[in-house]
């Protein structure tokens, strides 16, 4: 549906987007994740044709945004970070203007506007001036403008910023509903939002793609590198000794909590196997009590922080895994 090829954007000497490549399939919700200044908005602005790229191209359904802007742009609905609203207009006037600007046929405009207003639940404010609306409603009017005429691709730049929790949930539900029939790309720096809404997550940092996979898989990949936490009543030495007898354990660090009198050990392994069962058995054999035993699972938030804080090794690892998993998937599909 969308192909981003070798995209580069320079602002003077600053490289905002650095040779970005990715493909977006139709009928999925994509999350564009990255810290402030990572190049999310710039990439979205290039994808929608608002600004031009220094190098590279974006193909929307096979149409280049730079060579065939008209064909490409009519397939996209875009809600920028700040909704592009004319505050001196009434909601209905604004949507009529947007419909005409988007080139929706005259006969279909009224229905398209009604549908967009129903979807974003703004029918009751249609007669009000946009300047008198609250931030939440303004965001919805912006969203209504983006979904007007139900374009194939809907791009939303931080659609829930500045909204109250109830509105956030409503907008998320709306996005989920849209994702059933359309390709939706949304940018955010809120992890829960992305893991709750998106089918695929693209993490971008310093203008580069650092990972692209489903939220669950990204967590899984990072879990492979995870640690195991052991809590016990036994004394520090015996905990350390017991753990050292377990095969495939790479390192053990034991810390005694003086307040509770318990010992906490952080164990790292040198395989991808789950060694929790062996640890449990080792403690049982030594008749030592085990209060807690769990693998330190990274949330998408941890993954994000780890990937975007510049740990090159981690980034490479995730990239390798992502590519490997994708290849496996492709092989499976091929076999099927």
């Amino acid at each position: 549906m969308i192909e981003v090829k070798n995209l580069v954007k320079k602002y003077g000497s600053h490289l905002a987007v650095d040779h970005l490549n990715f493909t977006v399939e139709s009928g999925k919700i994509y999350g564009f994740l990255g810290p402030n200044g990572a190049g999310k908005s710039t990439t979205m602005n290039i994808m929608t044709g608002y600004i031009g790229a220094t190098e590279g191209d974006v193909l929307i359904d096979g149409h280049s945004i730079s060579d065939e802007p008209e064909e490409a742009k009519k397939r996209i609905g875009y809600l920028p970070e700040i909704p592009p609203l004319y505050i001196d207009m009434k909601v209905i006037e604004y949507l009529k203007f947007a419909a005409e600007l988007k080139g929706i046929e005259k006969g279909k405009r009224a229905k398209a506007i009604t549908d967009a207003m129903q979807l974003t639940r703004i029918s009751d404010v249609q007669g009000r001036l946009i300047k008198n609306l609250s931030k939440g409603y303004r965001q919805r009017v912006g969203l209504a403008q983006a979904v007007l005429g139900l374009p194939e691709v809907i791009i939303l730049d931080e659609p829930t910023v500045g909204l109250d929790p109830k509105q956030i949930i409503e907008i998320r539900d709306m996005i989920k509903k849209l994702g059933k029939k359309h390709t939706v790309i949304l940018s955010s720096h809120i992890m829960q939002e992305v893991s709750a809404v998106c089918d695929e997550v693209m993490i971008i940092s310093h203008g580069k793609m650092v990972a692209c996979d489903t939220p669950a898989r990204l967590e899984k990949i990072m879990e492979d590198t995870s640690k195991i936490i052991v809590k016990s009543n036994a004394d520090a030495n015996s905990v350390s000794n017991i753990l050292n007898t377990v095969p495939s354990i790479a390192s053990v660090s034991v810390k005694k909590n003086e307040e509770t009198g318990t010992v906490e050990a952080v164990v790292t392994t040198n395989t991808n196997e789950d060694v929790r069962e062996r640890i449990f058995k080792a403690f049982a054999e030594n008749d030592a009590s085990l209060l807690e035993l769990y693998s330190h699972k990274m949330s998408l938030e941890d993954v994000f922080i780890k990937l975007t804080s510049g740990s090159k090794k981690e980034t490479e690892k995730v990239k390798r895994h992502t590519i490997k998993k994708k290849d496996e998937d492709a092989d499976k599909e091929g076999e099927a």
Partner: peptide, 14 residues
């Protein structure tokens, strides 16, 4: 200033 140019330049109008 208001960012409304975004709706203009991302529309199909040249």
């Amino acid at each position: 200033r208001t960012g409304t140019d975004q709706i203009l330049y991302t529309s199909k109008a040249s």
